[in-house]
């Protein structure tokens, strides 16, 4: 069974462009910076930001490591050209390699480190340019925990966090992202040959269909299995969503007083804005 997920790209673009404009200007900032990987999500985020703030207020950073594919770099450059934004390429290989010293390191460890070095660079540039870091994590990645906490999951504002990957694809078409970026296999590109779907063991179409039924429609896993969904895929997704809840939370605090931050001391981020 495959449920089609309702989606309205025009409504979504309306909201997201205004979200970026409002949630930056409220903090007296009218610029954003974004790490461009050449992939779908960062291309969509950057395009929305240009619609919201104008191309002169969006800064792209291309942050390759030595294993980053040529194709990723070309596609990132293509987006810079299409959007007409200012961009800088910073090779992070010396930073990463000076820490690990040897090449024979667990690839997940190194992958996470690469993602966090990129975060460090972006947040440093954020300070230098007085610009907010724009996030690129979509809802599928956030739910499945397919990202590095304090790495690519870190940002100041994230326009894509309530959109499933397959919805990002539809939105990408609506806002004119080149077909080759939309249709290429999604990859974190943290090591040679890595693809999201290869690593997750499930396609985004399948994952989004299951997540949509579990999360939006609140259909229990057992009911989905009864309706013919693959048991192992359901179990895998349920366990990933649960296991990665920590990546979607702030660090927890041991409660000692009546007004513990995050528990009984709760203020909106847009306080007074």
């Amino acid at each position: 069974m495959n449920t089609s997920i309702p989606f309205d790209p025009i409504f979504t673009k309306n909201i997201l462009v205004r979200f970026i404009r409002d949630e930056t200007k409220k903090f007296d900032i009218d610029r954003v910076i974004i790490g461009l990987s050449g992939g779908l999500d960062s291309s969509v985020s950057a395009t929305l930001a240009v619609s919201a703030l104008g191309k002169e207020n969006v800064f792209g950073f291309i942050l390759p490591y030595k294993t980053t594919s040529r194709e990723s770099l070309d596609d990132a450059q293509l987006m810079v050209k299409i959007l007409g934004i200012q961009a800088e390429t910073i090779d992070i290989t010396p930073i990463v390699d000076s820490y690990f010293k040897i090449d024979d390191v667990d690839r997940v460890r190194r992958g996470n480190f690469i993602a966090r070095v990129r975060m460090c660079v972006l947040f440093d540039k954020s300070n230098e340019l007085n610009a907010l870091v724009l996030g690129t994590s979509n809802k599928t990645e956030l739910l499945l925990g397919y990202g590095t906490i304090y790495g690519d999951m870190a940002s100041a504002i994230n326009p894509l966090g309530d959109l499933y990957k397959t919805q990002v694809r539809v939105l990408a078409k609506e806002i004119g992202i080149p077909e080759r970026i939309i249709s290429k296999p999604p990859t974190a590109d943290l090591w040679v040959g890595q693809t999201d779907e290869g690593e997750l063991g499930i396609t985004y179409e399948e994952a989004d269909d299951i997540l949509y039924n579990l999360i939006e429609r609140r259909i229990p896993p057992l009911v989905l299995i009864e309706r013919g969904y693959d048991v192992s895929k359901i179990n895998k997704i349920v366990s990933l969503v649960k296991k990665n809840q920590f990546k979607r939370s702030l660090p927890i605090i041991a409660k000692l007083t009546d007004r513990t931050i995050g528990i009984d001391f709760r203020y909106p981020r847009d306080w007074g804005k």
């Binding site: 309702p6 309205d8 025009i10 409504f11 979504t12 673009k13």
Partner: peptide, 8 residues
Amino acid sequence: GYSSSGTG
């Protein structure tokens, strides 16, 4: 939520 009207 997304309406089916497609009118944004």
